[in-house]
């Protein structure tokens, strides 16, 4: 049993392994934690769509080291991200910033949901209106019974 658990742990090792190498890590666990969080939001410019925290590319390693260097120098998280953004542009941010150029990106989904609710609601409401009918008025009743009587008379002859 113990061997099985051991084997499972060994098997899980590759999934736990990360691109961050021991020599990159900071001795201060708090700073290191912040560095990891920042790295997860920064895109690797070589292997795109991967964050620099999990990328093995050389540039990603350089950027990780730079993030840690800025943190040690006393930068806030925002300052570190801005430092890298100034050099690589919005593209390095895995989460696009909220600014006039990205309004369409951020608000389009909400707009589409609202349009959907509006159109869908409109269709359903108009359907319901068609199904509901009111009682015939006295005048209409008279007309109908008149027609029916005429029909009956016609059938009898």
């Amino acid at each position: 049993m113990r061997q099985l658990i051991f084997a499972l742990c060994i098997g899980a090792l590759p999934f736990a392994a990360n691109a961050v190498e021991p020599d990159e890590m900071l001795t201060d666990p708090l700073l290191e934690q912040r560095a990891r969080e920042i790295s997860k939001d920064l895109r690797c410019v070589v292997c795109q769509n991967q964050d620099i925290d999990s990328s093995n590319a050389g540039v990603a390693r350089d950027l990780r080291l730079l993030v840690r260097e800025r943190l040690v120098a006393g930068d806030t998280d925002t300052q570190v991200v801005e430092y890298i953004r100034a050099r690589y542009g919005d593209y390095v941010l895995l989460k696009p910033p909220l600014e006039p150029a990205t309004y369409a990106l951020w608000f389009a989904p909400i707009a589409f949901v609202l349009i959907g609710v509006f159109v869908g609601g409109g269709v359903l409401m108009s359907r319901r209106k068609q199904e509901a009918f009111e009682d015939l008025g006295a005048e209409d009743e008279n007309t109908v019974s008149e027609i029916l009587r005429q029909n009956e008379a016609g059938d009898a002859s």
Binding site: V45, V46, G58, V59, D62, L63, L66, R87, Y88, G89
Partner: peptide, 13 residues
């Protein structure tokens, strides 16, 4: 050597 100037230039490769 360090690649730091490369980062300053926004180098991707």
């Amino acid at each position: 050597l360090s690649g730091r100037t490369g980062i300053e230039w926004g180098l991707s490769g």
